[in-house]
């Protein structure tokens, strides 16, 4: 009798297949871990792919020091539960120069994330890095391949990408080159939420609504997560019931007002609300096709 696999079962099997191919063919893989919901799904898939062995690679968090407090708390626990080594990298130059999102705009992302990621990969000699990017996140990612090749300087050469047929991935590369691999390319935001619900995956509480101190700035609802948030003269933090649809650096991540405090309610709200996911992130509003540009520079 035929047992038709559900779409989530097929997406899961595909992601596991990709992770195993990388482990079999790469010299020193690593999984980028940002503590967000996509990272949570990636980590869960990695545990499934290699069970009963622990995933045979470390987690790498390219830290900006500006993540939400709740994210730091979950980071340690998640790595421990999975039995994996957690490497935290903070760009020493960004520390020395005190780079922050309030004073330095896009330099903040550039130095902490783009430069920080390159430094970490070079320092540890990782040749393949798993990332949790999805093709549905925005238009320019729709054409992204699952195996994305980077030059020795981490540049993305659009003309030097390989066709991907069937489930055959070509992971061969020169010594100095590296590969970014995106096992959940074919997942949508709804798939991610459904999978978290179905598999009971632990995620940062910030995804659920709670009363939190907020200010409104440039049309974005920002959470005052710690004392480093420089309040302007006319600003007084207001407690609002909010949650986040994506998580990044707290001064750059817009919240939505919400009462959804359980996963089904969050999914319900997501399906009933009418704005797409990335709208809450300042990075996309910088300029048109900004993701594309950041990718060429080596941002994930």
């Amino acid at each position: 009798m035929t047992k038709t696999l559900t779409h989530l079962e097929r997406l899961e099997a595909e992601a596991i297949h990709i992770m195993r191919e990388v482990v079999a063919e790469a010299e020193k893989p690593v999984m980028l871990y940002s503590v967000g919901k996509d990272s949570a799904v990636m980590l869960h898939l990695a545990r499934k792919a290699f069970y009963p062995s622990p995933p045979p690679f470390p987690l790498l968090h390219v830290d900006t020091t500006w993540k939400f407090k709740d994210m730091y708390a979950l980071r340690e626990k998640a790595a421990r539960d999975a039995g994996m080594e957690l490497i935290v990298h903070q760009n020493p130059e960004a520390i020395a120069r005190g780079i922050n999102p309030f004073d330095h705009g896009s330099l903040h992302t550039d130095m902490w994330k783009t430069e920080g990621l390159k430094q970490a990969l070079d320092t540890y000699g990782f040749d393949v890095a798993f990332g949790g990017a999805r093709r549905d996140e925005e238009k320019s990612r729709a054409k992204e391949r699952i195996f994305s090749f980077r030059t020795a300087t981490h540049g993305w050469d659009p003309k030097n990408q390989r066709p991907e047929l069937w489930n055959l991935y070509n992971a061969r590369k020169a010594k100095s080159e590296s590969i970014r691999v995106f096992p959940i390319s074919n997942w949508t935001e709804l798939d991610i939420w459904q999978y978290i619900h179905l598999e009971n995956i632990e995620i940062v509480p910030l995804y659920f609504s709670a009363p939190r101190p907020t200010v409104t700035r440039d049309g974005m609802l920002l959470m005052v997560d710690d004392e480093r948030f420089p309040l302007q003269d006319d600003e007084v933090p207001v407690e609002r019931s909010i949650r986040f649809r994506t998580l990044g650096c707290y001064p750059l991540t817009g919240a939505v007002e919400s009462t959804a405090s359980t996963l089904p309610e969050v999914i319900q709200e997501m399906l009933l609300t009418t704005t797409s996911e990335r709208q809450g992130r300042a990075i996309d509003h910088d300029q048109a096709a900004s993701m594309e540009k950041k990718k060429q520079e080596g941002y994930f």
Partner: peptide, 30 residues
């Protein structure tokens, strides 16, 4: 939105799109 990229000389082999109905999820290779 692929035209501009083609002008930039970016190789696009396939763009993938996603949608779903009550019964199925679909992945469209364009």
């Amino acid at each position: 939105g692929l035209a501009a990229e083609r002008e930039q000389g970016i190789t696009i082999d396939v763009a993938y799109r996603f949608f779903a109905t009550e019964k199925r999820k679909f992945i469209v290779a364009d």
